[in-house]
């Protein structure tokens, strides 16, 4: 019963991540989408983990995910800082060789 509930939640998270990933093109949200994907992955992994290895997975998720979240927030902050610099032109412009 618990496995079923976990697979359901994992699948939901995966779907949300993929939808978010495909819909928006800006960095921060894309990062967030990938974060959801990884979270979904971890939840699904919980279904297969033998009991003695559970602690390793928990430790990994406990450390990894918050740090990734922090990175996503930093991406958000940098993006807003970028707009403040009133560089309204397409962010990818001027990347080329000629400037």
């Amino acid at each position: 019963m618990l496995e079923l509930m976990f697979t359901l939640v994992g699948g939901l998270l995966l779907m949300a991540g993929i939808w978010l990933f495909l819909s928006r093109r800006d960095f921060a949200l894309r990062a967030l989408a990938f974060l959801l994907l990884t979270l979904g992955g971890f939840v699904l992994l919980l279904v297969f983990v033998p009991s003695d290895h559970l602690s390793g997975l928990i430790l990994l998720a406990a450390l990894g995910l918050p740090v990734s979240l922090a990175l996503a927030v930093l991406a958000r902050f940098l993006q807003r800082r970028l707009w403040q610099l009133s560089d309204e032109v397409d962010p990818d412009a001027g990347e080329g060789r000629h400037d």
């Binding site: 894309r30 990884t38 971890f42 930093l74 940098l78």
Partner: peptide, 19 residues
């Protein structure tokens, strides 16, 4: 920003692999 995206995605994949 672009570097950050690379880091974020790359490391999450690493994390999942480790998992």
């Amino acid at each position: 920003m672009r570097y950050l995206q690379a880091v974020l995605l790359g490391t999450l994949a690493l994390l999942l692999g480790a998992g």
